[in-house]
């Protein structure tokens, strides 16, 4: 987040879109959450969350399973309706179209070839003649252009998740929500994917919220880490370590330690 807008634009792989109908520059959407609460039946899952995410920030949300972190994300992208409070994504008129969600599973349509699956992410207003080209462009970003005409069933788990990432990015979203998208991958593929997500985020400058149970992943990728506990934000720490970050950096380790302490002290207090 240091480069000027101009030099960024020069690097954006999607910048050559004079013919594209999508207006405006690709900048992130700011997110504002006020008094957000959600109950399922009698179970409170979120109990009053206040949060502001500036445009273009990469936020990681961590917490134990069942703490409400996925619910928070689903509320932010509008997949659930809040029981109280509200979520504002930049200027609301465009928010829905410029928001993309990447799921824990790839959720590719098995009856569409890879390139057609990516094109699902394009706005219906994009003309048929440009759809394939734009989808191929996004596939090139994730390094899978040569698999464009394969069926999803022949890809590996990591490749499928990369196709899902291309589908999420093909419309150049201004807000990307990631719901543990790397959780099901093996350790090495996961590190590779983390690098890919970071590289694309650096180039495209969208606002990103990553829900994860992997504190190491949160520390490696995020500008800021939120720890959710019992439906509230229990800790909000900045990760002010310049990129590219090196694994095993002592500063990162210190932040990781702080997050872990918080996660487990809480448990200690509960017992």
């Amino acid at each position: 987040m240091v480069a000027s807008t101009l030099s960024r634009d020069a690097e954006i792989p999607f910048a050559d879109r004079a013919a594209s109908p999508r207006p405006g520059p690709a900048t992130g959407l700011p997110v504002t959450v006020r008094g957000l609460a959600k109950t399922f039946g009698d179970m409170p899952v979120l109990a009053g969350v206040d949060l502001h995410i500036p445009a273009g920030q990469f936020v990681a949300v961590v917490g134990k399973s069942g703490c409400g972190k996925s619910t928070l994300l689903r509320l932010v992208v509008g997949l659930e309706t809040p029981s109280a409070g509200d979520v504002r994504l930049g200027d609301a008129s465009e928010a829905r179209r410029s928001t993309r969600l990447m799921f824990q599973e790839p959720r590719l349509l098995p009856w569409k070839r890879v390139v057609a699956n990516v094109a699902v992410g394009l706005d219906p207003s994009v003309p048929a003649s440009r759809r394939r080209e734009e989808a191929l462009h996004a596939l090139r970003e994730v390094g899978l252009e040569n698999r464009a005409d394969d069926w999803p069933s022949v890809l590996s788990g990591g490749q499928r998740q990369r196709v899902a990432l291309a589908r999420a990015l093909v419309s150049r979203p201004r807000f990307l929500a990631l719901d543990e998208p790397l959780g099901a991958l093996d350790a090495l593929t996961r590190i590779e994917m983390q690098g890919l997500v970071e590289r694309i985020w650096t180039a495209q400058l969208f606002t990103a919220v990553l829900v994860t149970h992997d504190v190491g992943e949160a520390v490696a990728l995020a500008d800021r880490i939120l720890v959710i506990d019992a439906g509230r934000i229990a800790l909000d720490v900045p990760v002010d370590v310049p990129r590219p970050r090196r694994r095993g950096d002592p500063k990162l380790a210190r932040i990781e330690g702080r997050v872990f302490d918080h996660l487990f002290n809480d448990q200690g207090a509960g017992i």
Partner: peptide, 9 residues
């Protein structure tokens, strides 16, 4: 998949 379709508009 249906949810994905809805989320993707």
């Amino acid at each position: 998949l249906v949810e994905m379709g809805r989320v993707y508009g």
